[in-house]
């Protein structure tokens, strides 16, 4: 499994072989508040880096979920659709959103390391 990488839209991604697992960051869940709805991309669809690939809604508002990397959706996490509060409880673990068959592994180079992301998140909050 690769080191976890982060996007400016507050998604995280890990890659094993050519399959990427994607979710939203703990920082994102803190900004959103209580998540009460999640919509995921359909299996078999192709998604493009920085394009929308789902929606989360908190009690306050709806937010798009973007994919930090391009590929074909090979799996989605129905358990977060059934119980969206899981996303608040374990955003960077069990509450992953979808898995992609990665189109271009080089795309990951433009993403941030954990240290870089934490600095970015802190600066963008202030």
């Amino acid at each position: 499994m690769s080191e976890v990488k982060f996007s400016k839209e507050h998604e995280w991604v890990t890659i094993k072989d050519d399959v990427a697992t994607i979710g939203i960051t703990k920082h994102a869940t803190e900004l959103l508040g209580d998540i009460v709805f999640a919509e995921l991309p359909e299996k078999g669809t192709s998604v493009t880096k920085d394009g929308t690939a789902g929606v989360v809604e908190s009690t306050k508002a709806a937010s798009d979920v973007y994919t930090p990397i391009s590929g074909e959706v090979v799996d989605t996490n129905q358990s977060i659709v059934d119980d969206p509060s899981k996303i608040n409880n374990d955003p960077e673990g069990d509450a992953w959103f979808f898995k992609l068959k990665v189109k271009d592994l080089n795309e990951i180079n433009s993403l941030m390391s954990r240290d870089e992301y934490e600095k970015f998140a802190k600066e963008s909050t202030n």
Binding site: G33, D34, V36, S58, T59, K60
Partner: peptide
């Protein structure tokens, strides 16, 4: 205040 630390549902 829109919410405090425990959030809207709590």
């Amino acid at each position: 205040p829109i919410q405090y630390k425990d959030g809207i549902i709590a």
